[in-house]
């Protein structure tokens, strides 16, 4: 019963903050609502016994990405932009599409497999020294080593790309 109550709290806050993120006129407010949203999603991850991801969610999303957003919002002087109408002309179409997408995606829920199929049961995780983080590390550096390396390359490319794109044109 306690789990359901916690879930209900997280779910309500997540949905509300999501709506506020896209509804706020001022992007700074959006960023702050998003911060709240990310903390609650991290809480949800804890409920799902994904402690490592919960930590990552807060460190990377809340700590790094959102701060980046905030910097950009502050860098750009958006006073004029905030005054205009916030929504584009395809507002209604967007609403219909979003609802349509929700309906279509939710209709796939009946295709769920009936029960657990993997080996990482709760008991197994608890019995492992280091718990969830240790198991993620083990899987990551064995089965997913190659994608992991590729992810590092992607990040490198992103760093270089961001520098190239954002720096001022040098007059040669």
């Amino acid at each position: 019963m306690l789990a359901e109550i916690f879930f209900a709290y997280f779910a309500v806050v997540i949905v509300l903050t999501s709506i506020l993120v896209i509804a706020s006129r001022n992007p700074v407010h959006s960023v702050l609502w998003m911060l709240l949203l990310f903390f609650h999603i991290a809480g949800l991850y804890l409920m799902l016994d994904a402690e490592f991801l919960a930590a990552i969610q807060i460190i990377i999303y809340a700590g790094a990405i959102l701060v980046l957003f905030l910097f950009v919002v502050l860098l750009l002087n958006l006073k004029e932009e905030i005054k205009g109408r916030p929504f584009s002309r395809i507002f209604v179409i967007a609403l219909v599409l979003a609802i349509g997408m929700a309906v279509v995606i939710s209709s796939t829920m009946k295709l769920l497999p009936p029960g657990p199929v993997g080996q990482y049961s709760m008991d197994m995780i608890r019995a492992t020294k280091g718990g969830n983080s240790s198991i993620i590390g083990r899987v990551m550096y064995t089965e997913f080593l190659f994608p992991f390396e590729i992810a590092s390359t992607i990040l490198l490319v992103a760093i270089i790309g961001a520098i190239v794109l954002a720096k001022k044109r040098l007059r040669s």
Binding site: S88, I90, I93, A94, L97, G100, M101, V104, I105, S107, T108
Partner: peptide
Amino acid sequence: VQEYAAVMAIGILIIMVVLI
């Protein structure tokens, strides 16, 4: 760009409906 994205979303919806 948003209207292009909307058209793309319509396409995705159609594909998903067809697949389901």
